[in-house]
Simulated scan of single mutants.
Amino acid sequence: MDNSLLLNSIAKYVTLDEQEQELLLSVVHHKKAKRKQFVLEEGDVSSKIIFVISGCLRSYAVDKNGTEHVLQFAPTGWWIVDMRSYITGEPARLSIDAIEDTEYIFFNKTEFEELNLKIPKFERFNRLIGQNAIATYQHRQVDNAIFAAMERYANFCQLYPSLIKSLPQKQVASYIGVTPEFLSKMLNTQVVK
């Protein structure tokens, strides 16, 4: 299995020497998920940090009416986890499933924590991507509060350019907080103008 995508992702933030890379790669687990297959189900405990090698995963919650609310998409080269469940050990409120056939790497929590102790640069990497994740989440919350649907859609397209054509409109609508019908009407109106 080629681990270069993972190593390149880490190298954007920190430089691991050969021994550190070997230690890191010694604890990665490779897995595949078929389209619509769960990687984490609501109610289970999240005990893995996941990195997508190919394909796409998404995390979402389902409300009492059965409506899905997409929190994140994780295309190739992205990380995904139910962080609250991972940190606290409480049951996950999110589900993570494959939008398409997906290949991913994961780290078990214990092994991941040991890596952070053994490779200080890896801990720095995790802090940096954690900070980026928090900043992105805050930015999205502000966008949802102050921007109209079309602006939220434009931000979605900027954040996930590789997914614009491949995702069903239903999932894009869920992510930006509108109904699929509203999104379709909004996009058709934009085409007409």
Rank of each mutant, 00 (worst) to 15 (best):
residue 8 N to G: 03
residue 8 N to E: 15
residue 9 S to M: 09
residue 9 S to N: 14
residue 10 I to P: 02
residue 10 I to W: 09
residue 12 K to N: 13
residue 14 V to Q: 11
residue 20 E to H: 04
residue 21 Q to R: 14
residue 22 E to I: 06
residue 24 L to K: 04
residue 25 L to F: 04
residue 26 S to I: 09
residue 26 S to Y: 11
residue 27 V to C: 13
residue 28 V to K: 06
residue 28 V to A: 05
residue 28 V to P: 00
residue 29 H to V: 10
residue 29 H to T: 11
residue 29 H to F: 03
residue 30 H to A: 08
residue 30 H to Q: 12
residue 31 K to D: 07
residue 34 K to Y: 04
residue 35 R to Y: 06
residue 36 K to R: 15
residue 36 K to M: 02
residue 37 Q to P: 00
residue 38 F to S: 12
residue 39 V to Q: 09
residue 39 V to Y: 00
residue 39 V to W: 01
residue 39 V to F: 02
residue 40 L to Q: 05
residue 40 L to C: 01
residue 40 L to I: 02
residue 40 L to A: 03
residue 41 E to Y: 01
residue 41 E to A: 09
residue 41 E to K: 15
residue 41 E to W: 00
residue 43 G to K: 06
residue 47 S to T: 11
residue 49 I to R: 14
residue 51 F to A: 08
residue 51 F to Y: 15
residue 51 F to G: 07
residue 53 I to S: 06
residue 53 I to Y: 02
residue 53 I to Q: 14
residue 55 G to M: 08
residue 55 G to Y: 04
residue 55 G to S: 09
residue 57 L to C: 07
residue 57 L to E: 10
residue 60 Y to D: 02
residue 60 Y to P: 01
residue 61 A to E: 02
residue 61 A to R: 07
residue 62 V to E: 08
residue 64 K to R: 11
residue 67 T to A: 05
residue 67 T to D: 04
residue 68 E to V: 02
residue 69 H to G: 01
residue 69 H to A: 05
residue 70 V to N: 06
residue 70 V to T: 15
residue 70 V to A: 00
residue 71 L to S: 12
residue 72 Q to G: 00
residue 72 Q to R: 13
residue 73 F to I: 03
residue 75 P to F: 02
residue 77 G to R: 06
residue 78 W to L: 01
residue 78 W to A: 06
residue 79 W to E: 08
residue 81 V to M: 04
residue 82 D to I: 03
residue 83 M to W: 10
residue 84 R to N: 09
residue 86 Y to H: 08
residue 90 E to M: 09
residue 90 E to R: 10
residue 91 P to S: 07
residue 92 A to R: 05
residue 96 I to E: 02
residue 97 D to G: 03
residue 97 D to A: 00
residue 98 A to N: 09
residue 99 I to H: 01
residue 100 E to M: 11
residue 100 E to L: 03
residue 101 D to K: 09
residue 101 D to L: 02
residue 102 T to E: 04
residue 104 Y to I: 05
residue 107 F to P: 10
residue 108 N to L: 13
residue 111 E to V: 08
residue 111 E to C: 07
residue 112 F to N: 14
residue 113 E to W: 05
residue 113 E to Y: 14
residue 115 L to R: 12
residue 115 L to H: 11
residue 115 L to Y: 11
residue 116 N to R: 14
residue 116 N to W: 00
residue 118 K to W: 07
residue 118 K to C: 12
residue 119 I to L: 12
residue 121 K to N: 14
residue 122 F to N: 07
residue 122 F to A: 12
residue 124 R to D: 11
residue 125 F to W: 15
residue 125 F to C: 04
residue 126 N to G: 15
residue 126 N to C: 15
residue 127 R to P: 03
residue 128 L to G: 02
residue 129 I to E: 05
residue 129 I to Q: 10
residue 129 I to Y: 03
residue 130 G to N: 14
residue 131 Q to T: 12
residue 131 Q to K: 13
residue 131 Q to R: 14
residue 132 N to V: 07
residue 134 I to L: 15
residue 135 A to T: 12
residue 136 T to D: 12
residue 136 T to Q: 13
residue 137 Y to G: 01
